[in-house]
Each structure stands twice: as structure tokens, then as C-alpha cells.
Amino acid sequence: MSLLVDVFTADESGESRFLDVPEGSSDLAGFESWRTTVWGSDAVCSLGARFFPQLACGPLCVAPEDVPDFIQEVLLLQNNIEPIAARMESPKPVAQRASEITDRLNNILDAAQRASQIRGGVQIW
């Protein structure tokens, strides 16, 4: 299974409405195992991340008012790809792991930026 990233808004009744993924974008946010091996890993936690480690316990829901801080956390992880990839336990070469994490972070950043433009939130599940 894969983790997915979606953008949502709240309708008049307060119910979340998930938006379609636009053409040219991807909703892939990593493998299910990445909840603990990447997003909730010691490497990510040691950077001071507060959003991504929540995925180790379940879905992550970023409220609209927290999206700017979430974007900063995505950028923090992007700037530390090599150390994160190097600390993963995987038979894949570090460069391949780094590339896969980069691709998923780019998808997450794209979703977060779309959410920011419409004052929406982000969910990874």
C-alpha cells in the first residue's frame, strides 16, 4: 500500500471536502512502511520535525492555519535528504532512497502549496 497526500477544504457544515488531484500532480506520499522508516524515523525526528512523525501513529491532518509551518517542515526535510536516506534500513542504494524520498516530498510540497493558495488543509493517509 501507499500513503497518499490530499488537499481539503471545509464546506459550510464544517465537513471536509477533498479536492481532486490536478493533472500533472501526484498524490503519492510514500510506502506504508515509510510511516516509521522515513517520516517517523529518528533521522526525521532529530531534525525537529513535528508533523511528519505523527504518521507513525496514523493519518496526518494539517489544519489550514498550520499549512505554512508544514511547508517549512517539508523544506527542512528536502534540505536533509541525504542524512535521512543514509539512516534508512533498506537494501536499496542511498542515492535511490534519496531520489524516492525527494519525489514524495515534491508531491507533498505541491499539495501543501495548493492548499495554501485556497486556505485549505493537507491530509496524508
Rank of each mutant, 00 (worst) to 15 (best):
E15P: 00
K92Y: 12
C57H: 15
R50V: 15
L76W: 02
S26M: 01
Q123D: 13
L109K: 09
A43T: 09
E82D: 11
S13Y: 12
L47Q: 02
A85M: 02
D103N: 14
L76S: 03
F70D: 05
L105Y: 03
A56P: 05
T102L: 05
F31R: 15
A86D: 09
E12A: 04
E32V: 05
P64D: 01
L105A: 06
S26T: 03
A115T: 04
Q54E: 14
D69M: 10
S2T: 15
Q78Y: 11
V94P: 01
E82N: 07
M88V: 13
S13C: 04
W39Y: 13
L19I: 05
L19W: 03
W34A: 09
L109I: 01
C61N: 15
Q113H: 09
L60C: 09
V7P: 10
R50M: 15
N80S: 04
I101M: 06
V38R: 08
S90G: 03
K92V: 01
W125I: 11
I81E: 01
A29L: 06
M88E: 13
G40D: 04
L75H: 06
R119T: 12
N106Q: 08
L3H: 12
S13V: 11
E73R: 07
I124Y: 07
G14F: 09
I124R: 01
S46R: 10
F70V: 06
P22R: 04
I101L: 04
D110V: 02
V122G: 04
I108Y: 06
R97Y: 06
A111W: 03
A43N: 03
E15S: 15
R17D: 00
P59T: 08
L28F: 12
L4G: 06
I81P: 00
L105G: 01
D6I: 08
R104L: 09
S25Y: 13
Q96P: 11
S16M: 15
A115G: 05
A10M: 08
L47V: 00
F8W: 00
F8Q: 01
V44K: 00
P53E: 01
G30Q: 11
N80A: 00
S116I: 02
S2P: 12
E73P: 05
S46Q: 15
A29F: 07
A10V: 05
L47N: 02
K92S: 08
Q78M: 13
I71D: 10
S33W: 09
F70C: 07
T102H: 07
F8K: 00
L75N: 01
D20Y: 12
V74C: 11
A115I: 11
I124H: 03
V122Y: 02
L28P: 00
F31C: 10
Q117T: 08
S116E: 12
V74L: 12
V122C: 11
I118M: 13
L4W: 15
A115R: 02
E73K: 06
S90D: 12
P64Q: 04
R97Q: 14
Q123V: 13
S116F: 13
P68G: 03
G120M: 03
G30S: 12
I118F: 05
N107R: 08
